[in-house]
């Protein structure tokens, strides 16, 4: 008998936004109408891509400098985003890739399709990536992104946010989400935030000011833990491929 991890816990679809959210207009023509077909995990779902330190550069996580000219730095409020990647069993998820992207301090993305009138910062690319350590810990250094207008309602504005992409150890854990900032009055008005079904889910996506991790006279820290799906443990042989 071996103690081996087995299936992932069923994803709680009522904790995620539904596919069709009419207040977020773009979802209307891009949301499947039929129900998802529920699959029990096989080896195709419990495995997933793995990335190592050979895949990325240590500077990739420093968005203040990873696109800046020598001796230059991105313009804006200097912040640290830090926390742990955990699973639903509260166990750390080590060695997993976390990718981030965001607008600059003026709310402008470095993207050929972004036409917002706020200027590009020549020293800010707007993306970063890192791999969690043995305790599941990660951090990015960046500038606080600005709010920006977008075409949903005529006067829709996105709250300041950072997009995050996380892999975990299995394709079943793959996740993309957005981090918001504590105290931002635009959070409650945002049609994308409003796709979330429960106030507690909005709270979970809100990074908290962390004065203990703030570096005095230097950089403000926000704490944001990320939770991926957890797995059942069993005292029986893993049944995915046998019995």
């Amino acid at each position: 008998m071996t103690l081996s991890p087995a299936e992932f816990y069923q994803r709680d679809r009522e904790w995620h936004p539904p596919a069709l959210t009419t207040g977020y207009k773009t979802s209307v023509a891009r949301s499947p109408k039929y129900s998802l077909i529920s699959l029990e995990n096989t080896v195709s779902e419990i495995t997933g891509p793995r990335f190592g330190h050979g895949d990325i550069d240590p500077l990739d996580k420093d968005m203040l400098h990873n696109y800046a000219a020598d001796g230059q730095s991105a313009i804006g409020e200097r912040i640290i985003i830090h926390g742990r990647v955990l699973d639903e069993n509260a166990r750390p998820v080590p060695d997993t890739l976390v990718e981030a992207w965001q607008a600059n301090a003026g709310g402008r993305y470095r993207h050929k399709k972004d036409m917002y009138l706020a200027p590009i910062d020549p020293n800010f690319g707007g993306c970063g990536r890192t791999i969690t350590d043995a305790d599941g810990y990660y951090y990015f250094r960046t500038v606080k992104p600005g709010a920006y207008p977008w075409r949903n309602w005529v006067n829709s504005w996105r709250p300041a946010h950072i997009h995050l992409s996380v892999f975990g150890t299995a394709f079943a854990q793959r996740l993309i989400t957005q981090l918001y900032f504590e105290g931002d009055p635009l959070i409650a008005k945002c049609p994308i935030v409003k796709t979330l079904p429960d106030p507690a889910t909005v709270e979970q996506l809100t990074a908290k000011l962390d004065m203990n991790a703030t570096i005095p006279l230097d950089t403000i820290a926000y704490k944001f833990d990320i939770v991926l799906r957890g797995r059942r443990s069993t005292l029986f042989e893993n049944r995915l491929e046998g019995n």
Binding site: D12, P17, W101, H163, I192, R229
Partner: peptide, 12 residues
């Protein structure tokens, strides 16, 4: 813990 809820990847 509860899984971190998803948000759209957005246009960018």
């Amino acid at each position: 813990l509860k899984e971190t809820p998803s948000q759209t990847a957005g246009p960018f």
